[in-house]
Amino acid sequence: MDTQLKKGFLELLVLASLKTQASYGYRIIQDVSSVMEISESTLYPILKRLELQNYVVTYTEEFNSRLRKYYQITSSGIQRLKDCREEFQELIKIYDFILN
């Protein structure tokens, strides 16, 4: 897939992976990579960006006697995913135009 296109989707995929429960870096990569390839170095800026846009908040929790950073989706993050529905309709229209 086109890298630019991929970049936009990755942000949403990461957000979607947090929809049901808070998650951490390693698990997010595993969850997302089942749908789209994502590298560790690309995830970091995506998480930072999501945090900057207030779509996620972070907290640290102890795990195996070390600290692990968790990412939790916010209400505006959930709203962002809801907005995807409308975008999806637009996208279908675009692809319909491209392919037919």
């Binding site: 390693y26 590298s39 560790e40 195996n64 600290l67 950073k69």
Partner: peptide, 26 residues
């Protein structure tokens, strides 16, 4: 540094090889 430290540790805990995972990081 913390982000990568955590990632590597999680990979090791998940049974991945330390050096192979680090190589994969690029």
């Amino acid at each position: 540094v913390k982000y990568y430290d955590e990632l590597i540790q999680d990979a090791i805990d998940n049974g991945e090889s330390e050096t192979a995972f680090i190589d994969k990081l690029g």
